[in-house]
């Protein structure tokens, strides 16, 4: 098995055994499989791409095809201990409503996203004068699925404005974890654990 993506590794480590987990935008189910194999967790997933759904189902995972923007409304309140949204928030049409849904369905929510204020992106923008194309954000402006770019500081104030609290935060540069110092400038990815 290939190594888990670093933000997913953080989430997999933190979720306790026995938790009920919904992974929104679960891709091919890598996190769900890791949770099952390491903690015996019977997670549920939602994914928009049918090929990814099929791949997840063939791994024995319970994944339904759906769109985070429209289909989260189908889940009852408090049906999960954790709702996970990894590297998907920036692709949704209404990140604010999606976050509300996550924290309605889940008692807590993990959200991970690429930090648009990381210095390489700032440099590319400032000196290149163009929308940045980097290793972590490899798409061009017109074909990117990332329609709501967000920075770590944006996200923190967004969470505060929505009335949620931050229970945990993790910052990543490539594979490595880093401290919170200057995270908005230095971290490529962030993972937040949120609570109502």
């Amino acid at each position: 098995m290939t190594a888990l993506r670093p933000d997913l590794a953080v989430i997999a480590e933190t979720i306790p055994t026995g938790a009920r987990v919904l992974d929104v935008g679960c891709g091919d189910g890598a996190l769900m499989a890791a949770l099952r194999d390491s903690k015996g967790i019977d997670a549920r997933g939602m994914e928009i791409d049918p090929v990814n759904v099929a791949n997840a189902v063939t791994r024995g995972l319970a994944v339904v095809q759906g769109d985070a923007d429209t289909d989260l409304a189908d889940y009852p309140d408090d049906s999960f201990d954790y709702a996970v949204l990894s590297q998907t928030l920036q692709t949704t049409r209404r990140p604010d409503l999606v976050l509300d849904q996550l924290l309605r369905i889940g008692k807590q929510a993990f959200v991970s996203f690429p930090n648009f204020a990381q210095w390489k992106i700032r440099f590319a923008h400032m000196f290149g004068g163009r929308m940045p194309v980097t290793k972590q954000l490899p798409h061009r402006w017109y074909d990117t699925p990332n329609i709501h770019h967000v920075t770590i500081d944006d996200f923190k104030s967004f969470v505060e404005d929505r009335g949620y609290s931050i229970e945990g935060e993790w910052y990543l540069s490539g594979e490595k974890r880093r401290g919170a110092g200057l995270a908005n400038l230095l971290a490529e990815h962030a993972v937040f654990l949120l609570k109502r």
Binding site: R44, V53, A62, V63, V64, D74, Y75, S79
Partner: peptide, 21 residues
């Protein structure tokens, strides 16, 4: 099918669903 999936989710059932082309 999505109506069924919605009901299965609400019942907490282990459900998979895919729409094929």
């Amino acid at each position: 099918s999505k109506r069924i999936v919605q009901a299965l989710n609400a019942a907490g059932a282990a459900a998979s669903f895919v729409e094929l082309s």
